[in-house]
Design a protein around this nucleic acid. Structure first.
Lengths: 121, 121
DNA sequence: CCGATTAGTGAACGATCAGTCAAGAATGAT
DNA sequence: ATCATTCTTGACTGATCGTTCACTAATCGG
């Protein structure tokens, strides 16, 4: 259930995901969602915390981490702390380089290649 | 004027920035803003395009680029194209590594350091 | 069975969103 | 000075936002 919501956050971003989106994604009803998580932010914290706890490091986890880093971490100490926790357990994957690479892949922009490549072999 | 708005986008993200924020940041009035740029998105495109045209590569430019990459590029072809343009002229700065590093710096999270450091010298 | 307690439900709330537009102010041509 | 044109302004709109809560359904101890 959290996974479904996390997927919505991953593809729409945090601010770009409405509670209606989360209701639809999770199948839960509005009230139940608020009973379980308290708020939209609470649900995000839960999703991010789950990644930290499971120490997962797949692309989906990285994408949610990117959303947290860009939209929440700069002004939310709790989320910033969870992000730090994730960064510290998965160093090889979550270096600046791999985060940046995933950022570009996510937008369908492979690492830029200056040589125009051979068009007519 | 565009610079002031770009600053708002940088610190709040795209979805996190309301038109009221832009009105306040720019000093322009709502109507004038819409006459000049057509829409919130139009203003963002203008700001991003200005970076591409001037080939600037400072931290502020990188931050707006990050916002574009995370929130707009995956689902907006025009913005994705401008992003590509920026990436291709400033290769040394806008590699995956430097984007990732800026992403972490922006959130006040320096690149994680596994060695706990010497606390008692 | 019954009453109490918890869970599920979605209509409704005030706030805020992006975007519009009619009316006033400024400008320029004659 | 007069009128036509362009710019400026912010009140307004319908939609959508995150959140609440009165209500009903289900669960369970006695």
């Amino acid at each position: 259930m959290i996974a479904k919501c996390a997927s919505a956050f991953r593809s729409n971003g945090y601010e770009g995901t409405s509670v209606d989106d989360l209701v639809e994604a999770s199948g839960l009803h509005r009230g139940s969602l608020y009973k379980a998580f308290g708020s939209k932010r609470g649900l995000f914290v839960q999703a991010l915390g789950q990644i930290a706890d499971s120490e997962s490091d797949d692309d989906d986890s990285t994408d949610l981490l990117l959303v947290a880093l860009m939209e929440l971490a700069p002004r939310d100490a709790e989320i910033s702390a969870i992000v730090s926790r994730i960064l510290s357990y998965a160093q090889p994957r979550h270096t600046a380089t791999s985060l940046g690479a995933r950022l570009l892949n996510r937008a369908d922009l492979k690492i830029p290649n200056h040589t125009p490549a051979k068009d007519k072999p």
